[in-house]
Amino acid sequence: MKRSPIAIVGLGVLVLVVIILPFTATNYLLRLTTIAFMYIALASSWNIVGGFIGYPSFATAAFFGIGAYASGILRGASSLPLPATWLFGAAAATLFSLLVGPAILRLRGHYFAVASLVLAAVLREITNAATTLTGGGMGLNLPAVGAINVDVQTRLYYVSMLVAAALTIGLATLIWRSRLGWAMRCIEQNEDAAIVLGVNTLATKILGFAASAATAGLVGAIYATWIGYIDPTDAFDDLLSVKPIIMAFIGGVGTIFGPVAGAIIFLVLEEFVWRNVLNFHAGILGIIIVALLVFMPGGIGSIGRGIEKLRAYGRAGRTSDISGAAPPVVPS
């Protein structure tokens, strides 16, 4: 594939900024960038199921929470190195996806969406009830990482989330370019036609679901040690399922770059609104999101079309012919 020089330069600058930041930036900015990496990973993770396969998944929170709790519990019970506990979290989320995937991936459309949404709710209740293992509603405190100071810790999680985001984008790209990616695109377009061509649609969907689970689980695991404390409402928060969808929609669903750009735009908006309109931030953010989705239904790539649409509304208002259609020809 050919890339434009602008894209290469842009990517180069981005890589440079990411490398330089830990040496120059304040802890606040680093923390914000770490959240950006987390959002990028979650949006790209959702995109594998929601974008490539076209299945509206609300399971991100379930995967995230399992990753967080599995790694958190293991960390409390053992002295394994951090990355090992994180991988354990990712593995637990993957295992969970392989257990429920074959059942709920037979459902289509809204039915699948609801089934995937319920997963986090059920897990939240189970986590609440399993007090001895998870601490229940009291939450789970994770031991801090050795005796290192705040500056080093901030940079440790900066790098870790960066790696998680890179792994997720890498995995998504790998899938997108492979035979599996083609099968997913076919399912997204027309599942029956895909079956007719011999695509094993259930297996394809399960693999995509598992890839999404592994990456979201890894992010959840890193998040748990980063924050140092998790509780059921936080780790299985439904917003963790909803936000990645919004990000992917902002940037462009079903592309590699879309969720990345969308996650950054979303974070900037979220942070900006949060800092400036503290007592109505959720409302303002909601309005912005609705406006973005109305005028850029295909993500930022379609902003031209959105402006065109606005102009068309303007024209329709000025002229008497609102429909824009030619008047019917009356045969004489």
């Binding site: 083609w182 099968a183 695109r185 377009q189 027309n190 029956d192 036609a193 007719v196 061509l197 011999g198």
Partner: peptide
């Protein structure tokens, strides 16, 4: 017909040889 939109004619044809 049930062709795959967003894919070229060539890609649609090649999907036929998926297996």
């Amino acid at each position: 017909r049930r062709l795959f939109a967003g894919m070229t004619v060539r890609e649609n044809l090649l999907m036929g040889s998926y297996l």
